[in-house]
Computed example of a mutant assay.
Amino acid sequence: MDILICRLLYPNDPTNTLKPHQHFVGLFSEEELILYSISSVLGKEKRVFALDGSINPEYFIIGKTDMKALSLRVPSFIDCSVSFHIKLNSSVDITTLSNRSIPYSVRERIENQIIRLKERGNHRQHSISLADFLKWNKKCKKRFQP
């Protein structure tokens, strides 16, 4: 699982919008989930590109070459400087949420960009409570049988 579609209320989003969103899965284990937001470039060009045409170094750009490999319809970007961390337990089954895999070569390039930003000290991690995550993504809450 490399891309996960789930709902999050982002602590750094002033609009407080809760809707399904695609995320790059930085880490997934029985104990934790680390996500990075995938956003369309459209409408965010000034944020993604500087006036000289250079790319914001915090972003991994998903252009024409990688769009098909990631099953995206439009040019997009991953903000590699901000992650969202959820501590998991046995009450959740993340695999019930829509997800897909991407080629290892693309995953490796994204991970390398995240590592570079962490090494430079340019990375923030926000914690999302499991209770909130389950409230927003009811589909992944396990139903225990007595």
Score class of each variant (00 low, 15 high):
S39I: 09
K44P: 01
N56L: 03
P75H: 08
I38H: 00
D13F: 07
G26Y: 00
A69L: 10
Y104H: 14
R73I: 09
K19F: 15
P75M: 05
I61F: 07
I38G: 00
I94Y: 06
E45A: 03
I38S: 00
I61Q: 01
V25R: 00
F28T: 06
I86S: 03
H123D: 09
P11S: 08
E30Q: 13
E32H: 10
L72H: 08
V92S: 05
L72E: 07
Q113K: 13
S54P: 02
R100C: 06
F77L: 05
D93T: 10
I102H: 00
S71W: 09
T17M: 09
H21G: 09
E108N: 15
I86Q: 03
N16W: 10
S37P: 07
S29V: 04
F49R: 03
C80L: 05
K19P: 07
D66W: 12
T95K: 15
V82S: 15
K19H: 10
F28Y: 13
Y10C: 07
P75I: 04
N122A: 14
F60N: 01
G121P: 03
D66M: 07
F77V: 04
G63T: 08
A50W: 08
A69D: 12
F49H: 02
S76M: 05
R109L: 10
I86R: 02
N122I: 12
V74P: 10
Y59P: 01
I86L: 06
V106R: 02
N112E: 14
R124W: 09
S81K: 02
F28A: 09
P14L: 11
L33N: 00
C80G: 06
R124L: 10
N16C: 15
E32F: 04
S105L: 14
D52I: 01
I86D: 03
G53D: 02
S83F: 02
N122R: 14
N12W: 11
R107H: 06
K46I: 15
R73K: 14
I114T: 03
K19G: 11
F24D: 00
N12L: 12
S81F: 07
E111N: 11
R47E: 14
S37L: 07
K19W: 15
T17H: 14
S76H: 04
E111A: 15
Q125E: 15
T15L: 13
T65F: 15
L27T: 13
L72R: 08
